[in-house]
Amino acid sequence: MERPTLKELAVQALSSVERGYDLLAPKFDATPFRTPDWMLAATITALREYGPFERGLDVCTGTGAGLEMLEEATAEPPTGVDFSAGMLEQARAAHPGADLVRADARALPFDAAYDLVVSFGALGHFLPDERPQLFDGIFRALRPGGVFALPMSRAPRRTQPAYWLLSGFDLAMRVRNAVWRPRFVMYYRTHPRPALLADLDAAGFAVETTPMPGVGELIIARRPAG
């Protein structure tokens, strides 16, 4: 697959989140932004002790990388939700058996329908004050006893180049959003682990973590059975 050009990436970055991903969708899987296969494999391995799972939902599914994991981890065909029509079009072509729903993840249209919910690489698209809406919707989408599995890669240290690369990206994005409309919300350092755990706890989840060797950890947020 051909990678997007610098001009295409620039146009995408100056668009809204929805329009930007509509434009990027046909070439998205050729970019570094697609969830890598090693992350999907590590998540499946870490989830084995918490299953089996019957029905799964991938929040902010994009072109459907998470659907691949759910097709292996759940008994029924998976569901993917995203608000980019372009991304869903690509996901539909790659996963014709999946149920794909166009919706805003801050207002998920599901009620006690799934026993496993996953999301990969999407938290940067939500500002800190939007996470409660996201997590409340995921809580409602789960059946009692169901699991929200959130993989987290190991955060780079200040001594590592990746730390400064991500910090620089966030700074550039803040400057862009201060001077340009519509905003494009995508940040790497707005969802630190303690804040995520606190927000999940506030949403009503029972939270634990399990290691993913060589990757980081998997946050397991369970809707209480009661």
Rank of each mutant, 00 (worst) to 15 (best):
A91Q: 13
M87T: 01
L57P: 08
V59A: 06
L88G: 01
E130H: 07
T43P: 00
F120S: 08
R176H: 13
F28G: 09
F169W: 15
E49R: 00
E49W: 01
L142M: 08
G66Y: 04
A103R: 08
P128Y: 01
A162Q: 14
L200E: 03
E18Q: 10
D136A: 15
H95R: 13
Y50Q: 06
A85G: 15
Q133T: 11
M152N: 08
F83A: 05
P78D: 00
P211F: 09
L70F: 08
P78L: 01
R183V: 00
N177Q: 11
Q12T: 05
T209N: 05
Y188E: 13
L166P: 12
V101C: 05
F33P: 02
A41L: 14
L47E: 04
Q160D: 10
D199F: 06
F53Q: 06
P128I: 01
P194F: 09
Y50G: 05
L218A: 13
D22L: 02
L67C: 10
G80L: 03
I219H: 03
F83Q: 09
L134K: 14
E49Y: 01
R176Y: 13
G145E: 00
L57S: 06
T31F: 06
Y188N: 14
R181L: 14
P132G: 08
A162E: 15
E54M: 14
T61M: 00
M186Q: 14
T210L: 06
G226K: 13
R189G: 04
G214Q: 09
P32F: 04
L14Q: 07
R143M: 07
G145Y: 02
R92D: 00
V117F: 00
R193N: 11
L23K: 09
A149S: 06
P151K: 06
P128K: 01
T63R: 13
V185C: 13
Q133I: 07
Y21G: 01
S119H: 01
E217Y: 13
L142K: 09
E76G: 05
L23C: 07
L116F: 11
A105N: 02
L196A: 10
T79Q: 11
D22H: 02
A98S: 12
P156C: 05
M212Q: 10
M39R: 11
D129T: 02
F139T: 02
M39E: 15
A122M: 14
F83L: 14
G168K: 07
P77L: 02
F28K: 08
M39K: 09
F120M: 11
Q12H: 02
A141G: 06
L123Y: 00
V17F: 07
E2Y: 10
D104A: 02
A221K: 04
Y188I: 04
F205S: 03
V101W: 07
P132T: 09
A10W: 03
F126D: 00
E54L: 15
E217S: 12
K27P: 03
A91K: 10
G56W: 07
A225Q: 08
R193M: 15
R131T: 10
S119C: 04
P96Q: 13
L67F: 13
A103V: 08
L218G: 11
F53R: 04
F169S: 12
S16N: 12
F120E: 05
A30I: 02
L123S: 04
V215T: 15
D111F: 14
T63W: 10
A103P: 05
G97M: 07
A75Q: 06
R131V: 09
E54F: 15
S84F: 12
